[in-house]
């Protein structure tokens, strides 16, 4: 029902909190089940130096937020935005049908990050 990746990341999440001055802030929600996740990201020399989340939702969506934050650390925005479908599926492990909405949440977090990166590129000329 809940795979080991989900259990570990939900039961003992390491990336809960707030950043005082985040460079990027992402917020996703699922209107159907009411899940809500906010991720704040700190950049250092174009690499992600910290990522923290806050979440209200089911166990799998909380785990998804922690998995996402953990996966960002020390990565460049480019590398994160280039992740393919298979890679993202492996991040959450095998999900039951009732947990599939968390794959959508993970995809949306990546999508929002890509959009922010493009926006920043435009802003920086």
């Amino acid at each position: 029902m809940y795979n080991d990746i989900i259990i570990e990341n939900f039961s003992d999440p390491q990336h809960v909190g707030d950043l005082e001055s985040a460079d990027i802030e992402l917020e996703v929600g699922n209107s159907v089940c009411g899940d809500r996740i906010r991720v704040q990201i700190l950049l250092d020399d174009n690499k992600i130096s910290n990522a923290l989340f806050r979440a209200w939702g089911c166990a799998t969506s909380v785990a998804t937020a922690n998995i996402f934050c953990d996966s960002l650390l020390n990565q460049s925005l480019d590398s994160v935005c280039q992740r393919d479908v298979e890679y993202k599926q492996q991040m959450l492990g095998e999900l039951s049908p009732s947990q599939h909405h968390c794959m959508d949440i993970l995809n949306e977090l990546h999508q929002l990050l890509s959009e922010q990166r493009v926006a920043e590129d435009v802003a920086n000329g």
Binding site: N30, V32, C33, C58, T60, S98, Q99, H101
Partner: peptide
């Protein structure tokens, strides 16, 4: 309540 799928609670 439980999650069911993306379209239905």
């Amino acid at each position: 309540s439980a999650c069911s799928n993306n379209k239905q609670k």
